[in-house]
Amino acid sequence: MTQIRMVYFAWVRERIGTGEESVEPPESVVTVADLVDWLAETSSGHAEAFENRSRLRAAVDQEFVPLDTPIGRAQEIAIFPPVTGG
């Protein structure tokens, strides 16, 4: 069981109600998508934030990755909407 630091931005952060939290997913959680599925069960805010997977982007240890990426031994995973800078 490893602790992962979750960080959230923009409307994902607002819907969840916090910008970061520490989680301990079960071993059945292999990919970022699995993690999102598991987190969606933890509160109505998480469920609302993760409702539409096609609108979610992720970073594992600050590197942008597709949602089907294995989390491996990640220490920090970020979930956020498509970026809108510039």
Binding site: F9, A10, A59, F64, A78, F80, P81, V83, T84, G85, G86
Partner: peptide
């Protein structure tokens, strides 16, 4: 620089 920045950097506008 500006084209890549728009899609590759984690900024969000409100």
């Amino acid at each position: 620089l500006i084209d890549r920045l728009k899609t590759d950097a984690p900024f969000w506008k409100r």
